[in-house]
Structure formats: C-alpha cells, structure tokens
C-alpha cells in the first residue's frame, strides 16, 4: 500500500517533469530553425502539427552535432603540438575543425568517414595549422 503510494507520487513527479520539459521547449530556440527541421522531416514522411515535438527533434540534432564537434575538439587538443620555438605561438594554437579530427570523432558514433589522404581542399591544406593565416 505504502509502496503503491510512493510509486504514484514518483509517477506524478515524472509526469510533472515531462510537462515542464515540453513547456520549456516552447521558450527554447534551437539553433536549427523550425522550418528547416520541418522540411527535412517532411521529406521522410514525418507529419506533426505540434511545434514542441519538432523542436525536440531539433534539440536532439543540435545535441548530436555539439557532441560530435566537442569530441573532435578534444581530438584536436590532444594532438601533440608541433615543435615551435616561439612559446607564445604554441599557446595560441588555432582550433580548426579538420577532417582528420572529425572522422576520428564520427567513428565513435558509428559513422565511418573516409577521405582522401592528400586531398587539397584549400590552399593551406597540409600546412602546419599554427602557421596558417600568417
């Protein structure tokens, strides 16, 4: 009896938390606009008039991208710094999203990205990241 009451209260709390979360989605503006998300969802047969659910999908996508990017950033930071004489320059290492870090990060999420090793997509490819734009 007592256990049933406790579980009932816990359920009530969970319901309240869910309602609060859905209500907070109305005020939250995801980085990916609603219309854009709706366009991609409609392409896959997703039909939903509720804005909150569309925002939920947008938030999930935003979190996915943010997680991938932060993982790639950790790879970027963990890479052994090039040997430079100027200590000041070493401290100001530029943080650039590269295919190398991105493919390492994506591999953890089950996405295998293969890119050509020597594909020069920009004039500065292959150069030392610290020496770019200087």
């Amino acid at each position: 009896m007592n256990h049933g009451q406790q579980s009932g209260e816990a359920k009530h709390d969970d319901d309240a938390a869910l309602t609060e979360f859905l209500a907070s989605l109305m005020d939250y503006t995801p980085t990916i606009p609603d219309d854009l998300v709706e366009h991609y969802l409609a392409k896959s047969g997703f039909q939903c008039p509720d804005v909150r659910l569309i925002r939920l999908v947008a938030v999930a996508t935003q979190k996915f991208v943010a997680d991938v990017a932060s993982d790639a950033l950790q790879h970027c930071k963990a890479r052994p710094a090039p040997v430079v004489k100027d200590k000041k320059q070493q401290k100001d290492k530029r943080l650039i999203l590269t295919m190398e870090d991105l493919s390492k990060a994506l591999r953890e999420y089950g996405v295998n990205v293969k890119h050509p090793e020597y594909f020069a997509d920009s004039p500065s490819t292959g150069m030392d990241p610290a020496a770019r734009d200087e």
Partner: peptide, 10 residues
C-alpha cells in the same frame, strides 16, 4: 563548442 575555424570539407 569552441572552434575558431573549420575546413570547408569538414
């Protein structure tokens, strides 16, 4: 997240 720049392919 903290990036300052990115390659276009990435």
């Amino acid at each position: 997240v903290g990036y300052k720049a990115a390659d276009s392919s990435a």
